[in-house]
Computed example of a mutant assay.
Amino acid sequence: MQTHYFLAVPLPSTLKRKIVESISREDFPFKRWVHEKDLHLTLVFLGSCTQEQLQQIQKKCQSLVTNWEAFTLELSTYGTFGSKKKPRIFWIGVKEEAKLYQLQRDVSRLCEESGFELDKKSYSPHITLARQWAIDNDYEPVDGNQMQGVQWRVEEFILYKSVLTETPKYKTVHRFQFGGGDNTQ
């Protein structure tokens, strides 16, 4: 089983707890819910890679963050990907923020320069909550959202690796703190 890597904005543990408590799993029968500790906002999915690529992207991202300052993100509404009646992914979105899109573009450019082949779909920032609708009844969209307006400060992004045999399954490889802080795990 290959290890996959991705770069993502972490969420504070208090925000993760709020998100988990905001939705009733009984009302939304998906087959697999994301573990609370695994909640994140993906910037770029890298897939499998060589040690050389990992070292190169770490070096480039460390250089990138020296010029970045913290910014604020705000949760928006729940949504789905896939069939409207039997969705593949259930997520919570973030309000549009120019700095997030710029960070994602900058990180993507560095990844491509390091030899990664990235998904060409336009960036759609979201926090995946669950996968695979589990019952025959159709999915009913969530009415309203008590999470709208909830904010957090983004002060870093993280290189994660997936360890599919463990729960939680995402492990920190390296933290890229804005302003140039270095925190290797």
Rank of each mutant, 00 (worst) to 15 (best):
L11D: 05
S108T: 14
G47Y: 07
R175L: 12
D106V: 04
T165V: 13
K171L: 13
E69C: 13
F45E: 11
Q177Y: 15
I89G: 10
S48N: 04
V34Y: 10
V9W: 01
Y101M: 05
T128Y: 08
W152A: 00
S13Q: 04
R25F: 04
I127A: 00
W133I: 00
Q62M: 15
E155L: 05
L54I: 14
F116N: 03
I23G: 11
E21Y: 09
Q102W: 10
K60D: 08
L100V: 01
S76I: 05
T72E: 06
Q2A: 15
E112L: 09
V44I: 09
L15P: 00
I57G: 09
T184M: 15
P12Y: 02
V154D: 07
G82E: 14
L39I: 05
C49S: 14
N145Y: 12
I89Y: 08
T167G: 06
E97I: 11
I89L: 06
S122M: 13
E112N: 01
S24V: 12
V142A: 09
H35E: 10
K120A: 13
K95N: 12
E97L: 11
G115E: 01
W133R: 07
L164G: 06
H40M: 02
Q51D: 09
L75Y: 14
P10L: 06
E26P: 09
F71H: 03
P141I: 01
H40C: 10
P125I: 01
L54P: 15
E52H: 03
Q151C: 07
V94D: 01
R32I: 13
D138Y: 09
S48D: 07
Q177V: 15
L64I: 07
G115L: 09
S124N: 14
E166T: 05
G180K: 03
H4V: 12
T80H: 08
T50A: 05
F116Q: 09
T3E: 12
G79R: 05
E113Y: 07
Q146V: 03
F71A: 02
G82C: 06
Q102L: 04
R17T: 14
S48H: 12
I57Q: 13
E155W: 05
K121N: 06
E96Y: 08
V65F: 02
R109T: 10
Y5A: 08
S13I: 15
E69S: 06
K60S: 12
G149E: 00
F6H: 06
E52K: 04
S114I: 00
L100R: 00
Q102R: 13
R153Y: 08
E97Q: 14
V154I: 03
I92P: 02
Q102A: 08
C111S: 12
Y160P: 04
